[in-house]
Design a protein around this nucleic acid. Structure first.
Lengths: 293, 293
DNA sequence: ATTCTATAATCGGTTTTAACGATTGATAAT
DNA sequence: ATTATCAATCGTTAAAACCGATTATAGAAT
């Protein structure tokens, strides 16, 4: 048994497909096939069921995966611990971020880059469920999302701040200056969805649905800065977590009938050893989170 | 980084000597040297200081060893978990036992062998510090010793029973029938040490010393059954943990001035996964332990 | 029913590398 | 000064990881 084989196994498990897994591992399918087989022989247990042309994890495989992952994790923790120790700080920090937390992230990353110029940052924007999945596959060090609360004990959940949903409009819009707005009022407005496919979008749709309202979303965009640019034109209004917006040309108007706040949170694997860079980044997030995102 | 390299590294760490380590690993010294170097290159850190012809672990090496060990452990736990799952029970249970717990061990192992005939038992008798060291190097699943209380959080300590020290004599000896005896009385008797080099021996010596007594030990043996045979002859008396002795030809006489009892305990590594065989053995030990060793 | 497609297993050959034996170099002990 | 002991290094060999091509199989499409 070698770590190499365990890594191959986990990738195959993740994709349930040897050919694909081999591609991602930059080896051929035949190599992967052989290495998995070798592992199975050593363990004297089938890890995958071969039903026709497809493979599915066996129960034994699922159980074994836990140990495989932990074995790999420990070895990598050891490595990154040493790299911290050397204080060369040549590490990489991979962070998943959901769209609405872009601002918080940029603020933190700006300061972080100043303090730790030699640490490479890899930021992956995406839908929270996708990010969490990547975290599970150890492809990320931490993710920044809204309201994900898997109760998986292998992860550490850390709330950063709460923020309500609000309508975003141009300062020149007739609604500028309003203290609040109702969903019913918004139903007839030209709306722009800035978080298509994200969990925030889901919350918004549900709120309208609950009141039997059918708003028209004239546009869907999955990039917040672009969406905000469009809102500035005055042609559309959008709905976002309030702290995602801070621009002198825009206003946020509290939505009277959405009480539920969104909670920004940081999720990371439970490590006995936590990368120094990670700790530092987390501290920055907390700092900026307290200032209101 | 491969598990093979981590195993090599740990062995080298254990022995502080590449040549010896290579021998135990059944590889040549040159291979070991190269593999360690390769690991060091990957980690970008020296694991050993090379001072002249000898090697000593660096601080980084000591830290890394923790992770290496855990990585290996996880992979092996996974493997043994599967072997249990298959219910083939082809596993091996390696147990270290200190001399005085021989009786408890034999009783338990007898029953265990009946219930789990396909599990191989490897029993290693030896001094407790030696056993504990082997346990640390993961060469044992558990050890049975007296009073070892390292406060290492990676181990689980489980007390089985307490037992006082007692003088052991032939039923025909003049002391047979005595309710108790003092160290001073024993000083002049022909004594036989049955636990030379073991921690119990240490306790006995200290007790005499404390009272300024200088007993004469006419014989030293490091095997209890043999020692007991000799005591039966009536020529010597010995001092042992009371529960080590159960023989119609022998009597145990409580020693009035040694109040301190010896605690039999089981020590095992803290596993998230515990071998079924281990659990079963532990249960038997507890059962027989309650009956008084 | 037949062909096509997607997939895993297998086979034979190639490349990589783990392992070896012998040698060198360095240093501690004699 | 000599010897013994150890780690590093070098060149070679054996093992095994890997590859490309082929085969086998099952599901999908025709």
């Amino acid at each position: 048994m070698e770590l190499r084989q365990l890594k191959y196994f986990l990738k195959a498990k993740e994709l349930n497909n040897f050919t694909e897994a081999a591609k991602e591992l930059y080896i051929t399918q035949s190599t992967l096939s052989q290495q998995i087989k070798q592992l199975e022989i050593e363990l004297d247990t089938l890890l995958f069921n071969r039903v026709g042309k497809r493979v599915t994890l066996t129960e034994a495989g699922a159980l074994f995966a836990q140990y495989a992952q932990q074995s790999i994790k420990k070895s990598e923790e050891g490595k990154s611990m040493l790299s911290d120790l050397n204080n060369l700080q040549t590490g990489t920090l991979t962070i998943g971020v959901t769209l609405g937390l872009q601002r918080l992230f940029s603020k933190a990353v700006l300061e972080f880059a100043l303090r730790y110029p030699r640490i490479r940052i890899e930021a992956v924007f995406g839908a929270s469920h996708r990010l969490v999945k990547d975290l599970e596959n150890m492809e990320m060090d931490m993710v920044l999302v809204f309201n994900e609360s898997l109760d998986n004990p292998n992860y550490i959940y850390h709330s950063l701040f709460d923020s309500p949903l609000a309508m975003v409009s141009s300062v020149h819009s007739p609604y500028s200056g309003r203290k609040s707005i109702t969903l019913k009022e918004m139903e007839k407005l030209p709306l722009l969805v800035a978080t298509k496919g994200f969990s925030t979008d889901h919350v918004i749709s549900q709120a309208f649905e609950k009141q039997g309202l059918k708003p028209t979303f004239h546009m869907e965009i999955n990039d917040i800065p672009t969406a905000l640019e469009l809102v500035k034109s005055g042609n559309w209004h959008s709905i976002l977590v309030q702290t995602s917006v801070l621009d002198k040309d825009l206003v946020t108007i509290p939505i009277a009938d959405i009480k539920q706040k969104r909670t920004a949170m940081l999720i990371r694997m439970q490590d006995t050893y936590q990368k120094k860079a990670m700790k530092a980044f987390q501290e920055l997030l907390e700092e900026y989170g307290d200032e209101g995102g």
